[in-house]
Nucleic acid binder design. Structure first.
Length: 843
RNA sequence: GCGAGAGUGGCGAAAUGGCAGACGCACCAGACUUAGGAUCUGGCGGGUAACCCCCGUGCGGGUUCAAGUCCCGCCUCUCGCACCA
């Protein structure tokens, strides 16, 4: 390695030491000052910081530092999302205790983050695997239980054999476990759920208020919640003795009640919980059960995304149509899923393509009851008529249009008690039970006498025991832990069984942003102080990867709304503005260990310094786009900083004791060249500020800083071209402005050089403001066009009149040539900008 | 299939409807050097002898004095959801 362009290593170390000893980034609530809450998604302590983290935190730190210089009281915290599976895997593979593994990872990563010079208030550090944090998970759980928002149910759940745990729908990707990519199977288990569906409407409607969120993320959430308005319709079961059934009806959900008279069959999902009970009455029981078994097996083994052929079997049971009273056969179909709607669908082959295909295959009757405009009622059907139209053969509803029919039929069913308007969602309730060790124990006890008994709040936290053994065969070691498992019932005192499942770690990250803000006067009996929360919340700017667009952000929104309703959160929406940063790519694909294309931030910091690494990641692409890593381009950022250091060194040598001039003084009689430099300085201030204020266009902000350095350098090189006092004034004020603007991006070097130019503690100095007088240019280039094509540019005063510009243009050789033989039809003049001659050939 | 976003030099990328390619990388030439993979200076979309001129922002139309930008119709890619009743 060659000699460094500047001693970044010493500079960064000493600047960081000073921040540390001055506690430069510690903040307190201060009602007299405006606040700004800048938050980056906290990391999972996997062992090492990767470039994705570096990018995420460089963006956040630039914004935090900028806002600080703008006078805001900036909350910028960091912590650790430290419960989760990798710690357990490490325990199995390396024989380390998850707690030790996690703790040492945190220690190492904290050093790495500090080396990057990120301006966090470390006094607010939050570590989710510590009892002081997870006790509140348990406390919230009890509140939710009390409110009926946490409940237990038997459910057919996604199960990963390899991880030996249940997965939420959100954690299944293309039929595979999101963590280990094993095929997911289905299992019936009794599990804890949170009623996120109760908030589905609110979460959906809240999206429209999130103007600071990317459209993309809002759409993804909307698609995930996916509301659908329709009607539930009861079909009664034609079974003489149905004592084993909870009800004598099966309910379907449809968005097309107008096609109700066209129902010729009903299809139920093979995994529907009522189906085994119904089949008790069926002469076709054996065939049906064989079909169910085959279908469920095929479903979990489906590895490609392709939809399987639609298949079904007659259940042997009939239903009664709620309006016509006719017999309707009940089929079991592989295309119906129990988790959506009611898990039962009415079959209308004439008006639904899927039902049409199904009816064709199994020779079921087709009844046309809607005629879309232009349909020939006598033509043979070649496919379903899915458009709206007028109803036919629909009893008293015949002749109605789609919208009207839907409403009238639904109202009629409601009156008869056999149907109701209903809004359903794709969103499912959030299953939070995990059969894992490294998570928050769910604070309930199972008592043979009292049932499920919550652990009283005063007994929290339920501590996660440390002395456990990992078998390596999956399953939770908690279930094998005798002292943890056996516990007296809080209600009757008899020996009972403690819940051994732990909570999904997404719970931890659903409220940590509240903890950061509220920790400053939190006490033992509440997770955060209301005063602090109402001062700091909401998060003004949240920054993180788009991979959290659905899971984490939806859960966090849900949790915040629940806490709002409990009077614990001052806001309903936690994140005012969201920035989803792009991925860091190398050689065209995402950096990952398995691809072997990772760049180690530590090595980069060692070779170029933290400032360079940060500057490059911010400069190379807009924050929300993917960033292609380029080792060579990193050197570009490095050279820029090195050149800046040497240029400022040269200024200090030329003017020892600088700055001797008062930078704020207005120099009235600058030379033309000097005036252009001054304009550039103030334009840069203005535009960098705009770049921050608009949508964090940090890449162009850096580019403008490079431009300013180029301008100042050129001016500096022409030593004899200007008066010495002008030179000193422009160079010192120019470089001072440049350093102030650079401080959010390369804070160490800015601090170091700033001190030499009379700007010690640069990060807490006010952000520069452009001088309006300097922004007024004496000469600007007028663009002269002929028929919209550029022919020349002429430098003139901004307020030059059209006639004067035309006059000057007439003296320009290129313009004259373009106009010769042409007749000017008209001219378009934009003051201070453009003159366009519209011409046509002279006849 | 539904939804969102994107397509500009060799590369990363800039451009309130008004000079396309700022800034940087790579590359080329020169300076300084025993040396240069350091640094500095200059050049750098294509055609061309040319600083004239012509062409050029995925494709085809349109609006406009003027379109990368606005409108209509396509193509391609990326991402999300997907048997959703």
């Amino acid at each position: 390695m060659s000699d460094p362009l500047y001693p970044f290593s010493d500079i960064e170390q000493s600047v960081q030491d000073r921040w540390e000893s001055l506690k430069s980034f510690k903040v307190q609530r201060d009602d007299t000052r405006p606040k700004y809450y800048c938050l980056e998604m906290f990391p999972y302590p996997s062992g090492r910081i990767h470039m994705g983290h570096v990018r995420n935190y460089s963006i956040g730190d630039a914004i935090a530092r900028y806002k600080r210089m703008r006078g805001f009281n900036v909350l910028h915290p960091m912590g650790w999302d430290s419960f989760g599976l990798p710690a357990e895997n490490a325990a199995v593979v390396r024989g380390v205790h998850p707690a030790d593994w996690t703790e040492s990872n945190i220690a190492h990563m904290k050093v790495q983050l500090k080396k990057l010079g990120l301006s966090y208030d470390w006094d607010r550090e939050v570590t989710t695997c510590l009892p002081e944090y997870y006790r509140w998970n348990q406390w919230f759980f009890l509140k939710l239980l009390e409110k009926g928002l946490a409940y237990r149910k038997e459910a057919l759940l996604n199960w990963c054999d390899s991880c030996a745990t249940v997965l939420a729908n959100e954690q299944v990707e293309e039929g595979l476990c999101w963590r280990c990519s094993n095929p997911v199977t289905l299992r019936t288990l009794s599990q804890w759920f949170l009623k996120i569906t109760e908030y589905a409407d609110d979460l959906m409607q809240g999206l429209s208020s999130l103007e600071g969120w990317p459209e993309r993320v809002r759409t993804m959430q909307a698609n995930w919640i996916a509301p659908s308005t329709g009607t539930e319709i009861d079909f009664s079961l034609d079974i003489p003795d149905s004592a084993n059934l909870p009800a004598r009806t099966l309910t379907v959900f449809t968005t097309r009640p107008d096609t109700l008279y066209g129902v010729t069959f009903v299809t139920i999902a093979p995994e529907h919980p009522l189906l085994p009970l119904i089949l008790e009455h069926s002469p076709e029981k054996d065939r049906a059960e064989a079909f169910i078994e085959a279908t469920l097996k095929a479903r979990t083994q489906r590895e490609n995304r392709e939809e399987p052929e639609k298949e079904g079997v007659f259940s042997g049971i009939s239903l009664k149509h709620p309006l016509t009273g006719q017999d309707v056969p009940l089929w079991i179909g592989n295309f119906v899923v129990a988790s959506y709607g009611t898990g039962v669908v009415m079959g209308v082959p004439a008006h639904d393509q899927r039902d049409f295909d199904f009816a064709k295959k199994y020779r079921l009757p087709v009844r046309v009851v809607v005629l879309p405009q232009g349909t020939d009622p006598n033509a043979a059907l070649t496919g379903a008529l899915t458009d709206d139209g007028l109803l036919v053969d629909s009893g008293t509803f015949s002749g109605l249009s789609g919208d009207e029919a839907r409403e009238r039929i639904t109202r009629h069913l409601e009156k008869c008690g056999t149907g109701r308007a209903r809004k359903t969602f794709r969103l499912r309730d959030w299953g939070i039970s995990r059969q894992r060790y490294w998570g928050t124990p769910i604070p309930v006890v199972h008592c043979d006498h009292c049932g499920i008994v919550p652990v009283p709040a005063k007994d929290l936290p339920v501590l996660l025991p440390r002395d456990i053994h990992f078998t390596g065969h999956g399953g939770s070691p908690l279930a094998e832990h005798p002292d943890f498992r056996a516990t007296p019932c809080p209600s009757c005192g008899r020996i009972a069984r403690r819940e051994t499942d732990t909570m999904d770690t997404f719970i931890d990250s659903s409220w940590y942003f509240l903890r950061f803000a509220g920790i400053e006067d939190a006490s033992g009996d509440r997770p955060f102080s209301p005063e602090s929360l109402s001062y700091w919340l909401p998060v003004d700017q949240y920054i993180g990867g788009v991979e959290h667009a659905i899971l984490h952000l939806l859960y966090a929104r849900f949790f915040t709304r629940v806490l709002f309703d409990l009077g614990l959160s001052p806001v309903q929406e936690p994140f005012q503005s969201l920035l989803t940063q792009g991925m860091v790519l190398k050689d065209g694909s995402k950096m990952s260990k398995s691809r072997g294309n990772v760049v180690d931030p530590d090595l980069l910091v060692e070779e170029y310094g933290a400032d360079t690494v940060r500057l490059f990641t911010l400069f190379s692409a807009p924050p929300d786009k993917d960033l292609s890593w380029d080792d060579k381009a990193v050197e570009g950022a490095y050279r820029f900083l090195g050149r800046l250091a040497s240029r400022i060194q040269a200024v200090l040598e030329e003017y020892p004791g600088a700055p001797s001039v008062d930078g704020s003084q207005w120099m009235a009689d600058l030379t033309h060249e000097g005036s252009a430099v001054r304009t550039k300085i103030h334009e840069t201030i203005q535009r960098v500020t705009q770049d921050f204020e608009s949508h964090a266009q940090l890449n162009t902000a850096v580019a403008r800083l490079m431009e300013l350095l180029n301008t100042l350098s050129n001016y500096q090189n022409n030593e004899d071209k200007d008066r010495p006092d002008f030179r000193e004034h422009l160079l010192t004020t120019g470089y001072r402005a440049l350093l102030l603007l650079l401080a959010p991006f390369a804070p160490h070097l800015s601090e170091h050089l700033g001190e030499k130019l009379g700007l010690a503690e640069i990060g807490s100095r006010p952000w520069p403001v452009p001088d309006e007088r300097a922004l007024v240019r004496t000469l600007i280039p007028f663009v002269i066009q002929v028929n919209g094509k550029l022919r020349s540019t002429i430098s003139l005063a901004p307020d030059t009149s059209e006639a004067m510009v035309a006059d000057e243009a007439g003296k320009d050789e290129r313009v004259v040539r373009a106009l010769s033989g042409q007749t000017i039809v008209k001219t378009v003049f934009v003051p201070g900008k453009i003159l366009n001659f519209v011409v046509r050939p002279t006849p």
